[in-house]
């Protein structure tokens, strides 16, 4: 599974970071990226509204505070966790997969990858990668005192670390 690109959205749905990791991709204009981000934000919200109630109850029960369960103690990084229980999680098409992760503070991390056969494996992998990106984000972006919240991310170290993590070696 190769990673094509990463998008980060702020709480209001505005695009604050966008990066491509595969040189073969076509580049869109900056405006197109913003429109894309807004669309995903909207679709995510709509998806949470149309989730049937029965599913919603299940996921609420399953989504107990992770600190209760053993998975927190045993895994080096908590897996299988995404903050939104009823919003959009994962889109699969013939040409690409999209994985979505939303933190408790409303920041969305969107990963676009190559399509692949085995579903659950990829989902776990993608969740792991998204978690690592979240940790890098909280380190290099949040701890930069000159970064204003909700603004576009212009931190070199963040670029460096994510490229290290995501670009295929």
């Amino acid at each position: 599974m190769t990673i094509y690109s990463l998008y980060i959205l702020n709480k209001a749905g505005g695009l604050i970071y966008q990066q491509d990791y595969n040189p073969g991709l076509l580049k869109l204009s900056a405006n197109d990226y913003l429109v894309l981000a807004g669309t995903i934000h909207g679709v995510h919200a709509i998806a949470s509204k149309i989730t049937p109630f029965s599913l919603r109850d299940d996921s609420a029960a399953a989504g107990q505070s992770l600190l209760n369960t053993n998975s927190f103690l045993n895994h080096p990084l908590p897996v299988n966790y995404t903050s939104n229980k009823t919003g959009l999680n994962f889109i699969q098409t013939d040409f690409f997969n999209i994985y979505l992760f939303q933190s408790l503070t409303g920041i969305k991390f969107i990963l676009v990858t190559s399509p692949n056969g085995v579903l659950s494996n990829n989902l776990t992998n993608a969740e792991l990668i998204l978690r690592k990106i979240y940790i890098i984000f909280s380190d290099y972006v949040m701890k930069n005192p000159f970064y204003n919240l909700e603004m576009p991310i212009r931190c070199e170290l963040f670029d460096l670390k994510t490229t290290q993590l995501l670009k295929p070696v």
Binding site: G63, L77, Y81, S83, S103, L104, R131, F137
Partner: peptide
């Protein structure tokens, strides 16, 4: 949140 993975 990133370090603990805590939920709501």
């Amino acid at each position: 949140l990133a370090r603990t993975g805590a939920g709501r």
